[in-house]
Each structure stands twice: as structure tokens, then as C-alpha cells.
Nucleic acid binder design. Sequence first.
DNA 1: CTGAAAGCGCTTACAG
DNA 2: CTGAAAGCGCTTACAG
Lengths: 346, 346
Amino acid sequence: MSTVTIKDVADYAGVSRATVSRVLNNNVTVADDLRQRVLDAAQMLGYQPNRAARRLRANVSDVLGLMISDIQNPYFISVVRAVEDTAYARRMSVVLCNTDEDPAKQQIYLRVMQAEGVAGLIVSPTHVDDGATLRAFAQTQIPIVLLDRQVDNAAFDAVVVDNVRGAYTAVEHLINLGYRRIAVIGGSPHLTTGRERLRGYCDALRAANLPIEDRLVRIGDFKIESGYALARELAALSHPPRAIFVANNLMTLGALRALRELRVRVPEDIALIGFDDMPWSGELCPPLTAVSQPTYELGREAVTLLLNRLAEPNAPFRTVSLQTHLIVRESCGALLQRNQGEESAL
Amino acid sequence: MSTVTIKDVADYAGVSRATVSRVLNNNVTVADDLRQRVLDAAQMLGYQPNRAARRLRANVSDVLGLMISDIQNPYFISVVRAVEDTAYARRMSVVLCNTDEDPAKQQIYLRVMQAEGVAGLIVSPTHVDDGATLRAFAQTQIPIVLLDRQVDNAAFDAVVVDNVRGAYTAVEHLINLGYRRIAVIGGSPHLTTGRERLRGYCDALRAANLPIEDRLVRIGDFKIESGYALARELAALSHPPRAIFVANNLMTLGALRALRELRVRVPEDIALIGFDDMPWSGELCPPLTAVSQPTYELGREAVTLLLNRLAEPNAPFRTVSLQTHLIVRESCGALLQRNQGEESAL
DNA sequence: CTGAAAGCGCTTACAG
DNA sequence: CTGAAAGCGCTTACAG
């Protein structure tokens, strides 16, 4: 298994290195017997073309860059898995980095990716203002596809979810259940996901002619701790909400912890719906009603967009928007037995 | 941001390309003024050495391969995060792949990693019998460090956890709580983790002079579904166990789901302790008592071992074994109020 | 259809 | 201490 090069294969097959290369990248016609000899030799010797050399010479790369903004988030895990699977099927590798929601780190990684010679980049940007940075990077001719979040003032291929509608549906569900005082724990306002899910919340209240109360609108940063802190604040209100819509999975986990500690019963005292489903959402306490994103499809679609872009560099940019769906379990109170009188008090 | 090469820097600084290279890899003395000119020029032009070229020529690589056996498992997420962080601090990138517990896929990825020219490899092997495969790979001079699992008949650097002791502690805890009929849902017997955690279970029972009952020993495959199926089987026994030790996080989640569906109360009817803690284990239903692994340290230590190996290729192989600790919450029944009479019936 | 040769962007003996 | 040159393993015009 010590390194066998194209020269070894050429010698073994009795042809030139050019011919070996041609056969293996089969873009051009090679006589059948030569082709066969080369294939046999490569097989025999266990030849594996050196990717670094290939990349250097041909400006052709088999590696995909994946820049995730928070690798601890279960949401992204599923995406990573999908990207990995899809890349594997195309015989590409993926180099992964975690920008940790930090624009500076993202900037550094962008340069690493360039130096690494990736064929293309899938990135969940750290900020709506990353447009300029990303556009500058795109000058290198390395295509970018945005994942999960969009960016202002710049056009890229993107795959996202219909956040407004997802949030709307969740809040509407609470309203239909009879809740009137519904709070929101929103996500980062410098992220499109944060903005859009908040919009969905507001739209749903307005559509039901319900007031939007300032004190019931709390903005966090999509991390566990902020969900925890904000849920505590809401529960401590003199006139606390009867339901909360939480804009992502991590904050939902934080909120659940806070309410547990406070001995606030979910859903009896306060109902909860979270954005993002997780494989174990049904085992949480209580089983979580959640807006489920098609994470696997998101990742797969991102790779597809990237590959299409590589094939057609000048095609118009395309945004693929996928729908979410609500999974109703117990935290929203849908299973609660209540009488009419009680309902009007929610 | 279009590509600037070493030639551009050399021209700009008025030196040869060799000098630029020397300054940037500062292994050799260069006159201070030249050095400064080069540094300025590089800074000025935003020079980023082409990694593919570097790898090709110098056989020096800045990329670490990370081969994970199940990227969906929250356990590995934390490890990935640690590896990523640590690599980043050393200015290295990581190329990730998911072998999906499949030896064939692992084999393919091994070749990809070689072609990719990684500096070294961190791998959680798919099977104790992967020794031969990995040893063959090691012929390429690319060092390997094993993570989480060991392999038979082959020596590598490795970072693992004391599984026997971790499992022992968990089962001992159950025994101390008064449980006598304790079942186990074990992991894959072709993995050292599966074997060792089972051993810990057996050791603890023996130490307490408790019998090991065949029907209370169920072996799964570390996936959710097997935890689910096996928990159902145990609960359906004519004389079901009063406590279960589950050998990993995913199977624990499956067991929780099964018991919920069966309306078996945890811990009142059957107590549960799982191997592996998760950030949201406290929010599960009920809050989970678990054997916590120092996942972040595991990942960090793996990178350290790899870097040491790169620096000293002939040092003796080293296995770093980290300790786990038990986090007591509610699923084990520690918080249950019981009287003496009841205890003797467990 | 096939081979000899140039060259991708680096690093590193080899001279001086 | 510094530069000219060779060469890492490929691919791709350029001839034939």
C-alpha cells in the first residue's frame, strides 16, 4: 500500500502516463485494448490518483468545503450527514469547519478553504451582513451555496426553509388550541432565520386579531442559555404567558430546563412549541411539539445546487425553499382535557 | 482575492521564491531586512500558500482526517467539535468522513484519505477486526490514532474511556439503591466498547454476589431501534427486571421510547441508567442518570496524540484512558421515596 | 488515437 | 545567507 503513482501504472500497462490519465478521466477516446490494459494495471496496483497533484495541475478538485455555524447544534448534524452521504456518492470528500457563529473565524476559514483548493463551498453564514465577505470570496471562482440562512445584498444559490410559514403554523396551532397570551423566544435578529420566524409569529397573531405585547417578545441568540434565561423572565412576569413559541431547538431545551426548575408544568401552566425537531424530541419531558425541518433534504439539495453550479457557472442563481411541518406531541397542550370555561381563560 | 502565488510575493519583495518559502516556513535563517520585506509583501498581497502544491512537493500536510463511525450520534458530535477546535488552533483543517459502522465504507475512505494526502488520521474503527486493514494503511506512513474503540492484534496510539469501570459504577449504583434484578442492554460485541461495558455489568453483579441471568442480558447494536426492541422484550418478560443498564445513548433513547409506549413508569416500575450523557439528558423524561464521558477531552487528546506521533514517528505507542463519571438524576430512582419493605422486593 | 513535454505552485538539496 | 534549478504527481495543449 505504499504510494503507487501514475508512472507505475503506465509502466505496468506499457503505455504513456498521458494515456493512463486519459483513461481514468475518460473524457477522450482511447483504443479499447489500451484502455483495458490501463484499467487492469490500475486495479492490480491499487492505484489511487494523488488528489493534491490533480488539484494543482488541473484546477479540478474533489473536495467540498462545508462551513457550519454551530456544529453542536443537532440541526446541523443531520445536514452534515446528508452532505457527507451525497458527496460520498459522487466520490468527493468534504472538509468541515465550524465558524462558531463568529464572522472573524468565518473569514479565516474562507481563506483556508481557498488555500485548500475546494471545488465549492456550502456555508451557513454567521450574519446577514456577510454578503460582502462572501462576494469577495466568490471572486476566486469558487462557487458558494448558502444553507439555512440568507445574506443581504448578495446573490448566491441557497437552500432554506420557509421559516415564516413554519413559525406561523406553530403559532396558529397554539391559537387554535385556545391560547391567547402567546410569547415568543426569538432568535438572533442578525440572522434571516431569527427575523423570519419572528415575522411568522407576528403574522399569526395579527391574523387572529391578537395584540403583540412587547413584554411577551424576547429575543435570544439561538443558544441554550438564552432560551433558559428568557423562559425564566417570561415565567416571572406578573401576568405570565400561557404559551411560548421558541425559535429553535437549543433555546427550547433551555426553556424546558428553566420551566422544570421553576416547577412550571408544561403544558398545563405554560404550553410550548419549538422550532426544529430532533430524533429524541418524543422522549423529552414533556414530548415536544415542534416544527420539523427536512434537514437531510436540505443538505442533499445544497450539494446538488453546488454541483449544478460547477457544471453551469453562469446559470441564474437559484433559491430552493423547503417546507416544514408541525409535529404535534404533548408540550403544546393538544392532548390536554379541558372544559369550555377554562379555555376562555387561556 | 484572485489567486496570488509565491511568485507574486517574491516579485513584490524583490527576492527569490526560495527566500519567500524560507521566511514563511521559518526553519532557516534569513536576513532580517529580507524577512521583513517578505512578510510585508505577503501581508500586503494577502498571500495564502497553495496547500495542494505544498503537500505535493514537501509531503507536508495541514489536513487531518477524521473518520467517524456514526456521525448522527451526539457522542461523536462533541468529539468532532473538539477535534475541529484543536486542529484550528494549530492552523490545520479537518476532512471528515462517516463510515456508518461499515467496514467496506471505511476501507474506501481509507484510500480517499491517502489520496487526499492527510497528515494523519483519527478513526473510530467499525470493528475489532479492523486491525489488519488499519495496519496496512499505516504502511503509507500516515499515522493513525484510534478513538473510542480499540482494535485486536494491532498497536496504535489510542484514546479511550475506562468502559469497564464506567459500566461497573453505573450498575453498582443501581445495586446500592437496592435493585437486585438488573438487566443490561449491551452494545455490539464486535466493538471493544460493547464488550467492555458488558464486562463492567457482569463484574458489578458478581462483586455483589448477584446472579447473571441470561434472559436479562440482551445484546443490541448501539442504535436507537435495538434499544427500543430490546427494552420491549425485557418489559414483556413474565418476571421483568426492576432496573436496566443501557450501554449507550442511542439505545437509551430507544428504551425510553419503548417504556413510554408500554406505560411502564421510569423509575417507579423500571429504573434506567444509560451510558453517555448528552447536553439535554436533564430534559428527558425522566431526567436521565448517565455515565458521562469527557467527550471534548477525548477529541482534544486524539489530536494531541496525532501531533506527537507526527513529531516523533518512532515513539512507543500510547493508549490514553480517560475516566467517566456518573451523573445522578431521576431515571435511576435515586430520588424515589421508598420504605424498607418495598426495597427488599426490588 | 497516442506520446513527449510543459507546467500547476510549491520546497529543498546544491552551489556559491 | 541567498538564488537557480530540479522535481513532487498529475493533466493537457501540441504534434504526429
